[in-house]
Each structure stands twice: as structure tokens, then as C-alpha cells.
Write a protein that binds this DNA or RNA. Structure first.
Lengths: 190, 190
DNA sequence: ATGGCCATGTAAGATGTTACATGATTTA
DNA sequence: TAAATCATGTAACATCTTACATGGCCAT
């Protein structure tokens, strides 16, 4: 069971019988970028889940198009198992494109570093505004887990913004202290 | 340029001429799980970067085995470009296996939810302890970006722990308020 | 001399990305 | 009636995972 498949089971459980398109839109509208929202990954995943008997298509009601998907009893078991099954590494840090780049700002000159900080801070602030707005959005209020996740998203982005601000302060301090502070040990030797 | 390739360029830049094995170990020892540490992804990526002329193997010094990799001038340019190039979605929330599962705790019974909260909190606390220890570790002190990243890791895990604690409090409250609070709209209709 | 680390890969298969393709229905 | 949205896919390609394979070096 991949992460994508687990989340798809969760979406179908929480959204009730719904089309594959609804699942696709849920990923596309997620505040969490990084979820593949391409139909090229979702429809094959739905086909896999159906082949395993975890989801099934029920006949659409009058006039509705498409296939209405819902969890089978084994699908519900699989979702319960997936929710409770996370490795020892879960809870730790996850891949963050901003942090990954921040490690290597030392290769940039002063202007480049400022550009990085500015851009990163703008992005983080914009993300925080979106996250706060999403929490206030009345739709999704009925789903406790959904609201809890939006809270988690906000906490995560607040932490990222705090980091970017600290990064900027440290950059200014380091630049004042010694010009080489940003260079790697290797570059210093050269 | 994939994220993996970008980070590999960064590692080779900051570690100076080093073997592919060193790159591999850096991923394996990263506090950020989720980076593929398998040789099956790293050596092919190194081969791609070499084919593009971004890294080159220099002859190893006396007695040293293996190939010593370093960035070519185009490789340094590529690293600078990659560090500054992050999409509009960067800065926002990233995929978090704990949060993804937390959305759907409603499918669990009271005992299952308690198990989830307990397990998640233990994992987050353990990760925080590791992150704090890594910050105090003297090795890596010379690299400003490395230290900054460790700070970011700690902030992220602190946010996750804060979220898990909030989740637990809300779970207790919701359970006291109404037994159905955890159920999805679909499950309620049934 | 044996187990552990250094070091570099490959093979098969699963998965994800990007782009294309089609057609119905709804809304401005 | 034109554009947007609903709806479901496929094809080619790139990438990642898992597992296997090999051999040198070093400390106990």
C-alpha cells in the first residue's frame, strides 16, 4: 500500500461514493503540494485498488455520469491498517524543497543570498495566508480530521516562516562577522 | 534537474571531492527521512549528472580507492540556478505521513484513535530528541548551511509535536461532546 | 579469518510525470 | 455559443524501489 493509495482510500471513505474525478480534484486542491494530482497516477492507482477488491464501483443514480466509487469492507480494513501503520521514521523531518536549498546558499554571492531569502519569505508568507484562509473556510467544517489537518498545515508553515526569518537574521550576522562564513570548508581551502 | 540531482550537486559542492559512497551515506544519515538512500537511485543520478558534464571524476590521490567526484564550473552554475529556482508552491505544506493519516482517524474506534495518538506522539518526541542532539553535535559546525538546516528540522518537528498534542486534546474534547464527532458525513448518513 | 565498512554498480519491476485524447454537461 | 467543468482514460518516458552482486581494506 503506497501513500497515494492510502490517501485515496481515505478520500473515498470521507467523501462517500464519488467519482475518480472528485478524488483527482481533492488532490489538486490540497493545500499540501507534492501530492500527485495527475490523472496519470490517480486512475492507475484506482485501478489497482479495484483489482485488489478494496474499492468497488456502484451504479450511479439517475442521470449521474461516471463511476461511483466506494470502499468495500476489506477496503475499510485496509484504510484502518494504513492509518495505524507508520514507520519509525514517521514523525521526523520530511523533505522540504526550501530547506534543501537553504543548506547550499553558501554557493551564492551576497546578492543571490538576499534574493533567496526574499523569495523564500514571500512564498512562506503567502502560504501562511492561504492556510489561515482555509481554516476559516466553512466548507469542510463537518469533517473533524480535515479541520485537524488544516491546523497541522498552519503549524508547519508557521515553523517554516520562523526558520526563514531566523535564516535571514543569521545571514546578516554571519556576513557582518566574517565574509567567509558562508563558504564551505572546501571552498575555504581553495 | 530533479530534487535528488540538485541535492547531490550540493553535497558534492559542500563535501569537496568525494566518492559516490559518501554521497550515499549523507542521504542515509540525513535527519530527513524520505530522501532515497538506495544505491539504485544515487548511482544512476550520478551517472546522469556526469553525462551532463555537471560533475567530473578526478583521479584519486595515492592509495585512495574509487572515483573522486567534484563539480565542474557548469555544475556550480547548475547548483546556483537550482538553489534559486523553487516554484510558487514551495514554502507551502509538504507531504507528511503523520498528518495524511490523521485526517482519517475517524474510521478508527476509540481504542484505535488512542493507539494512533500514542504512537504518533512517541515518534514525534523521539524525532525531537534526535534533532536537538544533532544540533549539539560538533561535526558539521563548520558548515553554516548545515547548521541552519538542522535548526529548520527542529522547528518542523516542534510544529509536528504541537500538532499531535493539539490533536489529542481535540480528540478528548470531541469524544466528550458527541460520540459521532469523528465520523465522516458519509458515515453519519448511514 | 571474519565481520564490518568502503565502494560501485545492475536488473526487474513498480510507480510517477507529462502530454495527449475524447466527449458530455453546465454556465456565462 | 463559447468556455469552463465533469469525467475517464492512455502512451511514452523517466525515475525510484528492492534486491542482488562483487571485491578491497581494516580492525579484532
Amino acid at each position: 500500500m503506497t501513500e497515494l493509495e492510502g490517501v485515496i482510500l481515505g478520500i473515498i471513505w470521507s467523501r462517500g461514493p464519488c467519482s475518480g474525478y472528485v478524488v483527482h480534484k481533492r488532490f489538486a486542491n490540497s493545500p499540501t503540494s507534492g501530492w500527485s494530482s495527475s490523472t496519470g497516477s490517480i486512475y492507475p492507482a484506482l485501478a489497482r485498488l479495484e483489482a485488489q477488491g478494496l474499492i468497488a464501483a456502484t451504479a450511479p443514480n439517475d442521470g449521474q455520469r461516471g463511476r461511483l466509487l466506494s470502499l468495500t469492507p476489506p477496503g475499510e480494513d485496509a484504510l484502518r491498517t494504513w492509518v495505524l501503520a507508520f514507520g519509525d521514521d514517521a514523525g521526523g523531518a520530511v523533505v522540504d524543497p526550501l530547506r534543501a536549498r537553504g543548506i547550499y546558499v553558501g554557493i551564492l554571492d551576497a546578492e543571490g543570498r538576499r534574493e533567496f531569502m526574499d523569495h523564500a519569505e514571500r512564498r512562506a508568507r503567502a502560504a501562511l495566508v492561504s492556510a489561515e484562509a482555509a481554516q476559516l473556510d466553512p466548507k469542510g467544517r463537518d469533517n473533524w480530521g480535515h479541520q485537524a489537518a488544516l491546523m497541522g498545515v498552519r503549524f508547519e508553515i508557521e515553523a517554516r516562516l520562523k526558520w526563514v526569518e531566523a535564516l535571514r537574521r543569521q545571514e546578516a550576522t554571519a556576513r557582518a562577522d566574517e565574509g567567509l562564513a558562508f563558504l564551505s570548508a572546501e571552498a575555504k581551502r581553495a
